[in-house]
Computed example of a mutant assay.
Amino acid sequence: MQDVDVLIIGGGAAGLMCALTAARRGLRTVVVEHANRVGKKILMSGGGRCNFTNTGTTPANYLSGNPHFCKSALARYTPWHFIEMVERHRIAYHEKELGQLFCDESSKLIVKMLMDECDAAGVEVLTSCSVERIAHEGERDFRVRTTAGTFHARALVVASGGLSIPSMGATGFGYELARTFGHAVKPTRAGLVPLTLSGTHQERLADLSGVAFDVTANCNGMSFSNKLLVTHRGLSGPSILQISSYWQPGDELVLDLLPGRDAHGFLTGHRASRPDALMHTVLAEALPKRFAQRLCEVWLPDRPMKQFTPPQLREAASLLQRFPIVASGTEGYRTAEVTLGGVDTHELSSSTMESRLVAGLYFIGEVVDVTGWLGGYNFQWAWAAGHACGEAIAA
């Protein structure tokens, strides 16, 4: 049996950040990762370039049953702290849009940076190592049997992630473990995920797969303006991924197809300047031609602008600015970037991530009921939560 100060289950973003932070303080720290390598989500993120943070991060960019929970950790470890580490390791990066920072080269550099920091601090990282049994012997006394041996730890950190992208090894292990220790787990569902259409709704758009354009997606009082992508099964793109976290089956979802424009003014202006132009020709000035044609095949009459009465133009404008989408579901965890829900934050300390029920037990990262928007926010939560936990574990 190996005695350690900190045993961390999960070698993802939160787990590695916690490990290097704790080990820098002189704590004997071991990370066990059941996959064959650490940081798999980091490696695949941002198209292989890792959207590692967002400079505009605020608590308002997160969903949680307890919206105040993330404030403390985010305030104490900001994007600029992580950027300092990135720059110290001379990793070139750029801002893509809306504060999103990406590596110029490869996400492998972020994983290497974290591993180099762990190595320098003396962290032991074990891959292809599964947890077989956990015994709670008493306060701050855990015995964890793994395929690499048994560990006796004073602190046990659960950083095992959520259910998203099971092909990379995602499981519900962290939720099951939380329940065995008496913790409540908020219902989970796929977040930042493409929406699916069915029946007539799908048939009308399926052959437009690949068409992309800017929209504003609106649902349950939230709005996101960005690209929409038509897929063979439904809708994707940043605006849809964002709104998917706020949508559930049966909820009203509408799109503004002309974001930032006055649709009525757009149509009446063209009626005056181009009275003989067909409606689809006019719409094709603001929308992809194929989508404009489909609008006029299914939803709008395709006739010369001069033949539209003022009430008809107002009706057309209303459709363009509140275009209804009847989604049947989502693509599920298979393609979801994150998992909504998780370990109930009311039973955790917001400053340390420690369980209020079991001393020495901590939960960090995606396993917790804190979920960020698309655009680097989830990584920033992982860094902040991991750092808060690593700083708090008693030496």
Rank of each mutant, 00 (worst) to 15 (best):
G386I: 08
F379M: 06
R37I: 07
A60C: 05
G46Q: 07
A13F: 01
E87P: 06
K289G: 05
L320W: 02
V157S: 05
G390Q: 09
H280Y: 12
G47Y: 01
A155Q: 00
L114H: 04
S107R: 01
S167P: 00
A170K: 00
E137I: 11
E33N: 03
G390Y: 03
S130C: 13
A395D: 15
F102M: 10
L300D: 03
V30L: 10
T58A: 05
A184D: 14
G332V: 09
T55M: 12
D214Y: 00
P310Y: 10
A206E: 03
T352Q: 10
D262K: 11
N226L: 10
G182C: 11
G191F: 02
V6G: 02
I240Q: 02
M17E: 03
V31I: 11
V282E: 01
S107D: 03
V368R: 01
S128C: 12
L74M: 12
T146D: 08
S225I: 00
R294P: 05
L283F: 09
G237V: 06
P259E: 12
C118N: 08
V125T: 12
I325N: 04
V230D: 06
S64A: 13
E297G: 08
V31Q: 06
L253H: 00
V343N: 08
S349L: 09
G56P: 02
N66P: 02
T171S: 11
F224S: 02
C70F: 05
V131G: 04
K112T: 10
I42Y: 09
Y62F: 15
R25W: 13
Q202D: 00
E139Y: 04
T127P: 03
L20N: 07
R290I: 12
G48I: 12
G250A: 08
W80N: 14
A395W: 14
K112E: 07
L320I: 07
L208H: 07
F142M: 00
Q100H: 05
P275I: 04
M17A: 11
G169Q: 04
K112Y: 11
R290K: 14
D104R: 13
L278N: 08
H183N: 06
R37Q: 15
F308G: 04
L197F: 07
S107L: 09
P288K: 08
G191D: 00
S107H: 02
G342Q: 02
A277H: 10
Q293C: 11
L357A: 11
R24L: 15
S45N: 14
G332W: 07
T309N: 09
V185F: 05
E84V: 00
L241Q: 07
L27G: 01
S239G: 09
F266S: 13
A178E: 02
T309W: 10
